[in-house]
């Protein structure tokens, strides 16, 4: 369907073009901002060399990492390298910054995909059923649980979960990425908040859809309740839901810093916070750009999904 969409409407290509330009502008603004602001956090030399290091070795360190030039020169050089897709070197790991970031991003992407698939399916099914009988027992339980889920601080859930399931019960390992068992706690903890939030949006959106005129028509045609919910109303209710799913997924792609830190999960969030704290500027910039690009791609996907779900949307 999306293929015919492209063939049919040349305007979607103009739209995608416009989106790409707008994002590119934002991305450049972001790079400028991060480049200059991150240097405000201090001089890496102080972190990487011993306190009693000589002035010469400090100078040498700065020379190697190009920290001696005035900032605008550093920036021009960086942008020049960037055009050749060279993201610079990590000071700490002495490897291309992009490599450090992509290694972390691979884990984060998997974590985000698994979590968001589970969240999406569960939230849509539970939310739709809750919306069908507003104020009923199922609705009340689902709403209350979703509220609790949306209110829970993830770091607290994470450490309580570790105490209960890893330390006391010994069911799952506390940290690392080795086996399937390692994934259970991080995924469950990350699942909770998005699930609560998206469930509420699904429910609200479904209530609106179920009270709309075309549902009346479907009842007058003799359509039964289940197809009314899942065929007639759901597809209409999905648009606002997709937006929120996008926001939540973006949050996960940015790296779930807290959960990754607590479970020792080597995702991009952990790479980023370490780089920030260690003033490894090239890695910070690479991480910002990789996640921003991933989020840009995801937003494009969402726009296309919009057009597929709702034939009235033509760009």
């Amino acid at each position: 369907m999306s293929l015919t969409l492209f063939a049919e409407s040349p305007s979607i290509r103009t739209f995608l073009g416009k989106r790409a330009i707008a994002s590119a502008i934002s991305l450049v603004g972001l790079v400028i901002l991060v480049f200059f602001l991150s240097r405000l956090t201090g001089d890496p030399t102080a972190l990487y060399l011993p306190v009693d290091a000589s002035q010469e070795s400090r100078e040498q360190f700065r020379e190697i990492h190009g920290l001696n030039d005035p900032l605008p020169v550093q920036f021009a050089r960086y942008m020049g390298d960037l055009l050749r897709l060279d993201f610079g070197m990590s000071i700490r790991r002495a490897e291309p910054a992009l490599d450090s970031v992509l290694r972390g991003f691979k884990w984060t992407l998997q974590l985000a995909l698994i979590t968001m698939s589970l969240v999406t399916v569960m939230a849509i099914v539970v939310g739709s059923l809750a919306a069908f009988r507003v104020g009923g027992v199922f609705d009340r339980i689902a709403t209350f649980c979703s509220l609790i889920a949306a209110s829970a601080p993830d770091f607290w859930i994470a450490i309580v979960a570790i105490v209960v399931f890893s330390v006391n019960l010994g069911w799952v390992p506390t940290s690392g990425t080795g086996t399937v068992w390692h994934w259970i706690l991080p995924v469950s903890v990350l699942f909770i908040r998005p699930f609560g939030l998206i469930l509420q949006v699904v429910r609200g959106s479904m209530i609106t859809a179920l009270s709309s005129a075309y549902v009346k028509t479907a009842r007058a045609k003799g359509v039964l309740d289940r197809p009314i919910i899942f065929v007639h109303a759901l597809r209409n209710a999905l648009l606002p839901v997709i937006t929120v799913i996008g926001d939540q997924a973006a949050g996960l792609l940015n790296g779930a810093v807290i959960v990754e830190t607590i479970f020792g999960f080597p995702g991009v969030g952990k790479v980023m916070i370490d780089a920030i704290l260690q003033r490894d500027f090239a890695v910070v910039l690479a991480a910002v750009m990789v996640t921003a690009f991933a989020i840009f791609l995801m937003n494009l996907l969402i726009d296309i999904l919009y057009a597929v779900l709702d034939p009235r949307i033509r760009y």
Partner: peptide
């Protein structure tokens, strides 16, 4: 666009700065 930049600016970095 300004809002976009703020949205994608890592809040942790902002806090550290």
């Amino acid at each position: 666009r300004l809002a976009d930049v703020i949205m994608s600016f890592p809040s942790l970095l902002l806090a550290v700065i």
